[in-house]
Each structure stands twice: as structure tokens, then as C-alpha cells.
Amino acid sequence: MRPDFLDRYSRLSSPVHRLPAAVKTTATLALITTVAAAPRGWTPLFVATAAALLVLAAMSRIPPLFLVRRLLLLEPFVIGVAFLSLFQPGGWERFVVLLARSTLCLFALILFTNTTPFSQLLTVLRRVRVPGIFVTLLALMYRYIFVLLDESTRLQRARASRSFSRRAGRGWRGTAQMAGQLFVRSSERAERIYDAMCARGWRP
């Protein structure tokens, strides 16, 4: 598995990427808060935010198709919840505003996460006094996601190569067995990692 499939574009070099992570975090938070809190009538604000985000997206040199695909991937839930708002007074207007608002927030978040490497985010978290044990947890998770997804792919490949019919081993029990195996392997790996961390002088 390509080791960078999660955040392929977060390490590009562009003016947006080069901004300090703390600045980007604050700006994203401020933008999302403003958009989420803006009253319904403020159409110019929504339009201005959309324009600003599009300019930033263009500056970031991330392939537009990738951004659109990410947005579409997450949009169904947004539409689903917004759909429920149709069934109340003034429903249509609410629906449109809700959709605009959450799509803008989503786009801002996608842009932010794809222009900021995860390690820089961890530094920001550490600076705002998030407990060390939690930052360690996140760092470990980010480090081993790739390893475990590889492990999971290997398990699936092994199963596919040993089952001759299309359905064999594809039942819930088979998949659960695989998930169980995955947990056993990760907890064994955790013990080895602990020894390795101690050998390198880590202390909690």
C-alpha cells in the first residue's frame, strides 16, 4: 500500500501549505464558526466565503478533481440530514441555507486537512496543552494506520487465495474472525513497540 494514500497532498509546496499550521488552524476554526453562526439572511457572507475558499483551493495546487471527490464522498449525510429539515415551516429556505452552510464548512475542513501535514497538527495540539498521553495516542495511530491496513489487506488476500468459491469465508463469521485476528496481531505488535520505545529511552 502506498504509504501516503491518506494525505497524499498535505506535503505539497504551495503558499497555502507553507503557512504555519497554527495560523491555518485558527483561521479554519474562525471561518467555520462564522459560517455556522451566520444568520440565514447573510447571503453575501456565504458567497464571499465560497469565493475565498475557491481562491485558496486554486493556490494550494491540489488537483481540483480530488477536492470535489472528497466533497462528494461526504455530502450524502449532509443532504440526508438537511432533507429532514424540509418537513417544517419555511422548510425549503432552511434546506438551502443548511446545505450551503455545511458544504462551506466541509470544504474549509477538507482544504485545511489536505494542506497541513498531520505531524504539524500534533505540534499545534501539544502547544494548546492537549494531554501528552492523548497526543502520543494520535501519533501512534497515525504511524500504524498504514501498517495495520497492510496487515488487513494481507489477511483478505490470504482468505481470497484459499477460498475457491466466491462466497466462501465471506460470511459475517469469516469477517469477524479476520477482525479478531487483526486485534490479536495489533496487541502483539503493541508489546513489541513498547519494548522498542523503552529501548530508545521513551518515558510516558
Binding site: 495516542l137 496487541s187 508489546e191 513498547y194 518515558r203 510516558p204
Partner: peptide, 24 residues
């Protein structure tokens, strides 16, 4: 104990990976 810290990290990773397994 501090031994649990990597276990928690790997368990989080496991949950993440296990959520990607499909149950038809």
C-alpha cells in the same frame, strides 16, 4: 501502566482498520 499506552494506540488503529471491513 505505561505499557498500556502503545496498546491503546494500536487498539485505536485496529478500530479504524476494522471499521473498513464490510459485513454484507
Amino acid at each position: 501502566s505505561s505499557r498500556q499506552v502503545p496498546l491503546m494506540g494500536l487498539t485505536a488503529t485496529f478500530v479504524f482498520a476494522a471499521q473498513m471491513l464490510n459485513f454484507p
